[in-house]
């Protein structure tokens, strides 16, 4: 079925003779093989993560590894309810949702201003936002740790919510500015002639039209915050411990609970995957900050 070239294939038009058709067929077969190989390489580590999470410790430590075994959900049950992974997942969720919300609250008006007004220092502002995307988190982690310690903010949700703004706010401003720019200015103009304030114009006219961009930026902010490890590791201990930090703390000791580690990993990755697949069309644009559309 998939081997037949579609009508869009220019090869079909030129393949008048039998040889040419054979060449075309062979190249289609190659294409199918390559596509399947790409998929296999991308998906296999996932397959291995999920299957390992369904193995008992004894099965997981078999050498060479077994591919067929009786799956069990014990790792999930133990990790979630006995080791406290559930709480760290809830912490991660609270932190990711709050920081995303805050980033939208601060970022959307700023994006509107960047898209609609001319003002001095706009270029510098832009530069500052991009630089934030590229700075290594360790640069901020050192001073933030000392400040949080002095203010008694270690191991508090609010600390991570705030520090995640350093990468969430730029990404929101980025994507939403781009989206606002795409909205015709005539709409603003018409509303202003009727006496609407800039704030009303943003809220009532532009924001509804910019919703796709807002949603995508929210997904990005959520994914980045949910995935983050370093700040979580340095700035939390137990109360506000995030799920990735929890997964790492399983790595201590000699006999590692591999099944449980993979179960926790699966629980961390699943929500990200769902969101990433929803936003898959915008992924490149978001990751390059709009440089590649």
């Amino acid at each position: 079925m998939a081997v037949t070239p579609s009508d869009a294939d220019p090869g079909v038009f030129t393949a008048a003779t039998g040889t040419k058709r054979r060449i075309a067929n062979r190249s289609v077969i190659w294409q199918v093989v390559l596509l399947l190989a790409i998929m296999l390489v991308c998906v296999f580590p996932f397959y291995w993560m999920v299957t390992t999470s369904l193995k008992t410790q004894i099965v997981a430590l078999e050498a060479p590894p077994v591919w067929i075994f009786e799956p069990t959900l014990d790792n999930y049950r133990e990790a979630l309810f006995e080791d406290g992974v559930l709480r760290t997942l809830i912490n991660s969720l609270i932190i990711a949702v709050c920081t995303t919300g805050l980033a939208l609250l601060l970022g959307v008006p700023a994006a509107f201003a960047l898209a609609r007004f001319e003002f001095r220092g706009k270029k510098d502002l832009w530069f500052w936002f991009i630089t934030n995307r590229m700075v290594s988190p360790i640069v901020l982690a050192l001073p933030f740790f000392l400040i949080a310690r002095n203010l008694g903010l270690l191991d508090k949700h609010i600390t991570l919510i705030l520090i995640y703004l350093t990468f969430n706010l730029p990404i929101v401003i980025w994507i939403v500015t781009d989206q606002f720019r795409g909205i015709p200015y005539d709409l603003d103009e018409a509303a202003r002639l009727e006496g609407a304030s800039q704030f009303t114009i943003m809220r009532k006219i532009c924001l509804p039209l910019a919703m796709p961009g807002v949603a995508v930026s929210a997904i990005f902010a959520f994914i980045f915050s949910w995935n983050e490890l370093m700040f979580g590791l340095i700035l939390t201990r137990s109360e506000a411990k995030t799920a990735p930090a929890m997964a790492v703390s399983f790595m201590e000791g000699y006999n590692l609970p591999y099944g449980k580690i993979m179960a926790t990993s699966t629980l961390i990755v699943i929500p990200v995957l769902i969101f990433a697949l929803i936003a898959s069309k915008q992924l490149v644009r978001g990751l390059t900050m709009g440089a590649v559309k």
């Binding site: 580590p45 993560m49 990735p244 990993s265 961390i268 990755v269």
Partner: peptide
Amino acid sequence: LVLPMATTYAVVGLL
């Protein structure tokens, strides 16, 4: 192709 990009970096290390 989205899968590798979206995977939590820490999880890649554990994997």
